[in-house]
């Protein structure tokens, strides 16, 4: 029997008084493309950040590829992992940020090779060849030596996707990857993501692009106030939502 790549069990996360996640339980299967939708503050971004351990969860557990994230169970208690161990776990996930977060003092190529060279300590020629191939894959072969400031938002986000892929992750996390883009640049980023989905990558995408969700997602998850309200096939959740709150959200968005 196949196992889920990500297993999320009763995860809660608070920021002070604010409950960002309230007992979220979810499985993500290998090769699945999952879109998370919902209003801002619904917890979808927080969920991604917890999987990538940019935020530590307060209770519950997240397993990635069968490995418990962030903590170790020992003698009936949970002990936090060291920064080094968390860094190693992070290598299994790639993260694409809303605001790209490319390193501005490095060229597109250097942005992509930074992780494989510095963190994974791999050989320079091999990494460089892979980076050039990744740039070709996102359609930016000509921009290898450009600095981020010389690229459009859409180009920067495609470099950011290549940077995440360079670490050969098992899971790609996209946090509103097109929200900071001018409307005419959204398409080129979504095209790269569609190609990635077709190649069989497991993806969790926080997005407001319902068209993309309808076309590409195997499953759509609607979240509100830190909880999963409804999930299912894209055509069901987006076309015939069962829950009143989902209907309200969709009618407000479209």
């Amino acid at each position: 029997m196949t196992k889920p790549l990500v297993a999320i069990r009763s995860v809660a996360k608070n920021f002070g008084e604010f409950q960002a996640l309230k007992s979220v339980t979810l499985d993500v299967w290998p090769g699945e493309v999952m879109c998370l939708i919902g209003a801002s503050g619904s917890g979808k971004t927080t969920l991604l950040r917890c999987i990538n351990q940019l935020a530590a969860i307060d209770s519950g557990g997240i397993w990635l590829d069968g490995e418990l994230l962030g903590v170790r169970e020992q003698g009936g208690r949970l002990h936090r992992l060291t920064e080094r161990e968390i860094g190693r776990q992070r290598l299994k996930t790639g993260m694409v940020f809303q605001r790209f977060n490319l390193f501005p003092h490095k060229t597109a190529l250097e942005n992509i090779t930074e992780g494989p060279l510095q963190v994974q300590g791999r050989k320079s020629d091999e990494v460089r060849a892979e980076a050039i191939e990744l740039l070709r894959r996102v359609g930016l072969s000509a921009k290898a030596d450009s600095y981020p400031a010389q690229l459009s938002g859409g180009q920067q986000q495609r470099v950011a996707i290549a940077r995440a892929l360079a670490m050969k992750p098992m899971l790609m996390l996209f946090d509103e990857p097109t929200s900071a883009l001018d409307p005419e640049l959204v398409g080129e980023v979504l095209a790269v993501m569609k190609e990635l989905a077709r190649s069989g990558m497991t993806m969790m995408v926080v997005t407001h692009e319902l068209g993309f969700a309808r076309e590409v997602a195997d499953r759509v998850v609607y979240m509100d106030q830190g909880a999963i309200i409804e999930q299912g096939r894209a055509s069901d959740v987006l076309g015939a939502p069962r829950e009143e709150r989902t209907r309200e959200f969709l009618s407000a968005v479209i």
């Binding site: 990538n52 190693r88 992070r90 940020f97 390193f103 930074e114 963190v119």
Partner: peptide
Amino acid sequence: GQYEAAQAIGMGR
């Protein structure tokens, strides 16, 4: 975001 992007590619502090 620069710290987060560095962490996301596995870098320590």
